[in-house]
Write a protein that binds this DNA or RNA. Structure first.
Lengths: 201, 201
DNA sequence: CCATCATATATCGGATCGATACATTCACCC
DNA sequence: GGGTGAATGTATCGATCCGATATATGATGG
């Protein structure tokens, strides 16, 4: 979902500053399935204000200068409801961890073991986060459903890692010396009799 | 992982054209944890060629004009190995589906039911994809580990959806008329006694 | 007494996506 | 025979978005 819509969604739970919206994507209820950076949040809020989707009130407390508190308007709420009617596309997942694991054979087994340990800690943390958010904002059935989903996924991931860490490491250490050089020699389907001309440069 | 590194990774399994690399991110072994578009793949390949990481051979078959087949070089292989040493960051997940489910209360229960049905079909498809890739490219322990991980996650997701679809829909239909207007009246922690000045415009 | 963290706004360059244009082959159907 | 559309391919453009950074202030703490 684009950042503007995400900002509207964040503001639906109450007024907030740009900074607070960022935190909602880092630690709050959206943390595990949406994200946005300052570089997109602030421009989005400005655009939403110009479009009348949000209103701003500048809070001048003690010392701290301008602190812009954003509130969603009726138009903004209508806009969000409209966006909720889209057909959701593919989930986008980008995991450096799985990328590294994909090439386990090219790395030292110890390194692979460390990576898995780190990832298990990471998933433990994720479960703690969900539990914490669960206490902080009880909320309705939609949120509970999403939280439950996250819990199920992370629990399964954790189980998979603990079940398969040792087997993988065993396999890597036994076949260690061989180094299969990954696609050099007998590569996949070497069938193409096109005339090829080597490019210069 | 940046697109350049992803291209090198794709080429490690054998030579390929830009088009084929794209397909590897859509249907191939990387499909479920990395992605890239033409708009980033082609510039990346050009940059990699200039840096000597890949070499190009233009295949002039019958009819079809220039078809640039890319091959990873030794320098490219070294570069990839270096990139494998990074510490992996957070997995990035962006799910429109969970975003929509988060706001279940604002939508018709039938619509929610449809969304869940669609997502179950989507996860079924994902499991089929993994099974298909498993047959097409047997490969080593790293790939098997990643595939197993995906299988575990999708299976858990599927189970969660089938277990919780009906309970959610029941909850939504019973509380239907109420429409909790999400954060308007008794919003979260209304404690801030800063002087606020309403912004014009 | 100064480092450093948390709060807070904002911008810039670059990475990346999504859509699109273009060109050709092949399969299919009428 | 001819037309339509899918698949294969390269390539670019605008819009979006991220990551790093600059700026400023108060609180915390060694």
């Amino acid at each position: 979902m684009d950042v503007k819509t995400c900002c509207l969604a964040a503001l639906l739970t109450g007024e907030a500053t740009g900074y607070e919206i960022k935190k909602m994507f880092e630690e709050g209820p959206f943390a595990h399935f949406q994200s946005a950076s300052f570089g997109s949040i602030y421009p989005s809020l400005t655009a939403l204000r110009k479009a009348g989707m949000v209103s701003v009130s500048t809070a001048t407390g003690e010392g701290r200068p301008d602190k812009k508190v954003y509130v969603i308007t009726e138009a903004g709420r209508a806009e969000l409801l409209e966006k909720l009617e889209i057909t959701p596309g593919r989930d986008q997942i980008r995991s450096d961890f799985l990328f590294l694991m994909f090439f386990s054979e090219l790395q030292a087994p110890d390194r692979i073991g460390d990576l898995i340990d780190q990832r298990r800690a990471y998933f433990d943390q994720a479960l703690d986060d969900i539990a914490r958010v669960e206490v902080e904002s009880p909320a309705g059935p939609g949120r509970a459903f999403v939280r439950g989903f996250g819990k199920a996924i992370y629990t399964a991931a954790l189980r998979y890692l603990s079940d398969n860490q040792k087997p993988l490491l065993d396999e890597l250490t036994t076949n260690h010396g061989s180094r299969p050089d990954a696609g050099g020699g007998n590569g996949p389907d070497a069938e193409h009799d096109n005339k090829t001309t080597q490019a210069a440069e």
